[in-house]
Amino acid sequence: MVNDAIARNKRKDVAFKSIGLFVIFFILILMYVPILVLIAYSFTNATNVGTWTGFSFDLYGALFQDEEIMTALGNTIILALSSSAISVVLGTCGAIGTFYASKKARASIEIVTQIPVVNAEIVIAMSLTVMFVFCGTYLFMGANIFSFWTLLIGHVILSLPFVYLSVKPKLLQMDPHIYEAALDLGCSQGKAIFKAVLPEIMPGVGSGALLAITLSLDDFIVTAFTRGAGLLSGEKTIDTLSTLVQAKIKKGPVPPEMRALTTLIFLFVFLIVVLITVYNNVKARRNRKKGRY
């Protein structure tokens, strides 16, 4: 009787699990179709996906020869790294400072932090651009101030609140006595923050930095609005991957060289995911071992 019930339950579980996995993988495959198609067609010369003109690695060679794409790629990377570095420093300092600030100051900073998070990207972009034009006309005697710096500000604004928001929970979880202990042991206030608080919130800072890089790499609208001339593009308007691809796909299919680039990016990301998984597994195993003693 009891055994029957257990067996029935087990069968139910197995059925649930297999249906569940089926649904998950079905959606996953659907989500990967466009990317996988691009990757598959990166090994052929055809201008359009859907026509296979024989296997070749030509696109990879063409990719590294294509100056436009390489410039855009360089711009994108420089922009992502610099904007996330600024966001991380500003956001981490901001989060620590706000954490120790008075209740009133904290409440108002939190509200202002929420604005760029919930705001539509196009409104952020539009408002920044209008302000830059306004500043250009009224403060800089009608000069055009759009350049790498305005673009950088746009990207920092985009990611700054997210850095703040990923550091904040770590501050809340932190043992509040650590900072005081450091002071008692003779640290100055600045040193106590550096040596005692910062290591505690490091995971939050790290995830904030990754988030900032992701947001910057993926951004189109803010880039299109706030960019000017400069960086690797020289005298021309700065092109990042997003704006370059957008300009191309407006006229025709995804450029063939981009398919090769997609493959490379995908491999890179895949490698990172594998490394993260392996690292987490190793860490979990080590923790389990530690727990035994």
């Binding site: 998950i24 992701t214 189109f220």
Partner: peptide, 27 residues
């Protein structure tokens, strides 16, 4: 019961790391 580790979740996030304009063009 269905998913014991986080790999599947990561697989759902992974496409987000490919430029979204590029993904839109591919779609």
């Amino acid at each position: 019961k269905v998913n014991k580790n986080k790999i599947l979740v990561l697989l759902f996030i992974m496409p987000m790391w490919i430029n979204f304009v590029l993904r839109t063009g591919a779609t």
